[in-house]
Design a protein around this nucleic acid. Structure first.
Lengths: 189, 189
DNA sequence: GTCTATAGGCAGATAGAC
DNA sequence: GTCTATCTGCCTATAGAC
C-alpha cells in the first residue's frame, strides 16, 4: 500500500482531463501538472500512460457500481430506473459542457486502444444488465433487454446531442420523454 | 479551379482516416500516404491541418444534404422519416465497426477545436430541423421538435452503444422500436 | 520513493529547388 | 504546381542522482 496519495491524485487528474480535452489528447505533462506531481514520477506509479488510463476507467466503473448498489439498497425496481433517469436530467448542464463520462471515453478509446475500450465498454454493459434486471423485476420478461437498450440509447443519444450542440435541452427533453414512456408501459404479466 | 484531383483525394483520405482512428489522431503523413500525395504538398492545397478538417466536414455535410434532398423529391413526409431510419438500420454493421460519421466527428472535435465542432454540429442540427419539418407536415404541430429530438437521440445513442460494444444489434433493435413508435403516433389534427 | 534531465521519436509546418 | 529536405517543438519514456 502506498504511503502517499499521489497515485490517487494522478488518477483524479486523469479523470479531470478526460472530461475536458480527453485522455488521449492530454499529455502526461498536463496530468502531472494538475496532480502537482513531477512528470517523471508518474512512472513510479504507472508503467505506461495506458496503465494510468486503465486505472481511470476502473475508478469510473467503481463509482457507477457504487451508485447502482445504493439505488438497489434503497429503492424498488421502478424507482431505481427513475432515479437513473433523474440523475442524468439533473446533470444536463455538465453533460452539455463535457459529454457523458461513460459514452465519451468509450468513443474516444474505441479507435485508439480497442482493448482498453472493451474495458470501458463494461460500464455500458453493466448499466444495460442492471436496467434489464429492473425491467424483469417489473414484470417485463423477455421484453426487458429491448427496454433496457432503449433507455440507455435514448440517454446516450441525448447526451451526445446536448454536448455536440452545447444545449442541455436535449437531455432534459429526452428524460421527460423517457419517464412518460415508462409510466405508460404495461408489463406482460 | 485546380487541374488535378489531389485536393479531392486528400479530402477523401481525411474522410477515411476520420472513420478509422479519427481525424485528430491521424497524422498528415497518414493522410498523405493514403491519398498518394507527398506530405509537404498538402500545404499547397490547405494552409493547415485544420483547413483540411474544415473541407472534410463540409464534404460530409454536403453528402447528407443531398440525401435529404433526394428523399424530399421522391417520398411523402412519413416515408422520408422511415427512409432515414431504414438507412441507419441498413448500415448497422458499419456503425458498429466505425461509429456514426456524424456523431463521432462531433464528439471528437468538440474538445479539440470548438469552432470546427460547431461547424460539424450543423450536420446534426440540419437533420433535426429536417425531421421537425417532416413531423410538422405529418400534423404534429408543436410536438414536432420533441419528436425530432427523440428520433435523432435514439439513433445516435444506439450507434454509440453498437460501436462501443461492437454489436450491431443495438442499432437494429432501436430502429425497430422507433418504427413501431412512429406507427403508433397520433397527430394532433 | 522522489525528482531532474534528457533521450528518441514523431508531429505539424516551412524553405526552396525544380 | 510538385516534391524533398528539414526545422522546431512536444510527446512518452528512461537513466540515474538523491
Amino acid at each position: 500500500m502506498p504511503r502517499t496519495d499521489k497515485r490517487a491524485r494522478l488518477v483524479a487528474a486523469a479523470d479531470t482531463v478526460a472530461r475536458g480535452p480527453g485522455f488521449t489528447h492530454s499529455s502526461l505533462a498536463d496530468i502531472a501538472a494538475r496532480a502537482d506531481v513531477p512528470v517523471g514520477n508518474i512512472y513510479y506509479w504507472f508503467k505506461t500512460k495506458r496503465e494510468l488510463g486503465e486505472a481511470l476507467v476502473e475508478a469510473r466503473a467503481t463509482h457507477y457500481r457504487a451508485l447502482r448498489r445504493q439505488w438497489d439498497r434503497t429503492l424498488p425496481p421502478r424507482r431505481r430506473v427513475d432515479a437513473f433517469i433523474e440523475m442524468v436530467a439533473a446533470n444536463r448542464d455538465t453533460l452539455a459542457a463535457e459529454g457523458c463520462p461513460i459514452g465519451s471515453i468509450c468513443t474516444e478509446l474505441r479507435r485508439h486502444d480497442p482493448a482498453l475500450a472493451a474495458q470501458a465498454g463494461t460500464m455500458l454493459s453493466d448499466f444495460l444488465r442492471w436496467l434489464e434486471a429492473q425491467f424483469r423485476a417489473m414484470g417485463h420478461g423477455r421484453a426487458s433487454p429491448g427496454l433496457a437498450s432503449h433507455t440507455l440509447s435514448s440517454l446516450q443519444g441525448a447526451s451526445l446531442l446536448s454536448h455536440a450542440l452545447d444545449d442541455p435541452a436535449h437531455v432534459a427533453r429526452e428524460a421527460r420523454h423517457l419517464k412518460r414512456w415508462l409510466a405508460g408501459l404495461r408489463p406482460v404479466n
